[in-house]
Amino acid sequence: MNIFRLTGDLSHLLAIIILLVKIWKTRSCAGISGKSQLLFALVYTTRYLDLVSTYISAYNTFMKLIFICASYATVYLIYMKFKATYDHNHDTFRVEFLILPSFVLSLLINHDFAVLEILWTFSIYLESVAILPQLFLVSKTGEAESITSHYLFALGSYRGLYLLNWIYRYYAESHYDLIAIVAGVVQTVLYCDFFYLYVTKVLKGKKLQLPA
């Protein structure tokens, strides 16, 4: 464990908590893409299947359980409890265009053609694009509530911090995983324009308005 990975995981945890609290407190999921949350639930389910087979540490197990439970709780809040506030009209990204290519790619490029490894690889590829429906929704509505912006900033930062973690582990432990690194770079790059808007607008107290 290193400081980059720890802050990355905490940033990830913060993002998930921000979203849950936002939906729960405002009793509304307006401005939130249910599709992205479904994709995240799929990502954690396919990645953390090893929960039942391998024990790495209490921290690892605890965090995986939190991520899985929180992602399903978020999906439940969006599609069941507060579904009246779900923005059907704007949450229209075709997620099959993300799921299928990720699955095909995980069959073609992986470290080992075994079920758990393929599912892990699929979850890595899918996670790198899972935020697209949310970013698409923000671009369609042209704005995002500041709490949603904080959620996106924390979520985008987590994988960015993981990139630093992988650089550190390459030099400190001389190990690396190209699949995770390449997908992590793609994932972080997708947030770049949002990061720019977040720093130049939201941090100055303005609302996140995308140029129409």
């Binding site: 990975r5 790495i56 995986k64 993981y162 995983d177």
Partner: peptide, 10 residues
């Protein structure tokens, strides 16, 4: 192979 180690990450 390098992937076995990375599974200690979330």
């Amino acid at each position: 192979c390098e992937s076995m180690l990375v599974k200690d990450e979330l």
